[in-house]
Amino acid sequence: MPPTDASTDAGTAPRTGARDRTGSGTDSQDTLDLRLPDDFLALFAGGAETGATGEDLLDGVGDWGPKATPVGAFQLVPVRIDRDLPLITRWMNDPAVAAFWELSGPGTATQEHLRAQLDGDGRSVPCLGLLDGTPMSYWEIYRADLDPLARHYPARLHDTGIHLLIGGVAHRGRGLGTILLRAVSDLVLDRRPSCARVVAEPDLRNTPSVSAFLSAGFRFSAEVELPDKKAALMVRDRALRDLL
């Protein structure tokens, strides 16, 4: 049994077939016809949401700055492959992480996973999580409304999703998952005024993960049948952030 926080964080890994945020995933579910709301279609007109206009789809994650937490100052720093690949590869080869992320191996799988996001249109940004300046977690901040996940729940414009893992064993089992989930979802809501909800989809069987999200101010919205798992759709609403 992996440590509690290992289960919590690995359980928010991207689902198989949705790793490539550029839309080149191979899962057949991603090619289903989908009737998008008119406001979604308007955004795609003329390439507005594909980076053709230079628009930042996530409002400058790299400029969000630090967030004070009970365990120290936390900050998201966008990944640089030349600097960060060895560290992230080591984390991906931890058995507790590999069971969910399926990116273990010599590093090519992890590199391809990162490169697909970095070379994409900006709808997903891979980041290191620094606690008091020390890299200790990996995050993906992504536009859930522009992700294949949107085919499986009633997405709203600018819904923002998160995936995460806590890297070092020394940082697990200390309740950090809950603290950091609240901190990062606060950052999203503070820095993305157009975003009304932060969402995540941990494996429904991963009770520690679901519990961590609930403790971080998320609510359980629904069971969602994804291509590779039954997920718990967890939602943190801007309107409820001070109540939960």
Rank of each mutant, 00 (worst) to 15 (best):
T22C: 08
D9G: 15
A73H: 04
T16D: 13
G11W: 03
P37N: 04
V61N: 00
A6C: 14
P37V: 04
D9Y: 08
G72L: 01
R21W: 07
L36N: 04
A48R: 13
A42E: 15
A6E: 11
T53G: 14
G54S: 10
L57C: 03
L32H: 15
A68K: 09
F40A: 15
F44D: 12
A48K: 13
S7F: 02
T31K: 14
S24Y: 13
D56E: 11
G62V: 03
D27H: 12
D27N: 14
S28H: 08
A52Y: 10
R21A: 13
P66C: 03
A52F: 11
D9K: 01
Q75F: 00
F40L: 08
F40G: 02
V77W: 00
E55G: 02
T69H: 01
G47H: 12
R15E: 08
L36D: 04
D38G: 02
E55L: 14
P70G: 04
G62S: 09
F44G: 13
P14K: 03
R21L: 06
G65Q: 02
L58A: 10
D59R: 10
D27E: 14
S28D: 06
V79L: 08
V77I: 15
G65V: 01
A10D: 04
L43S: 10
L58Q: 08
T53Q: 11
D56K: 05
G51Q: 09
T50S: 13
W64H: 02
L76E: 02
A6M: 11
R35I: 12
P37A: 06
D33C: 09
A68E: 10
A6V: 09
W64A: 00
T12K: 03
Q75G: 01
W64T: 01
Q75M: 05
D30G: 14
G17W: 07
T8K: 03
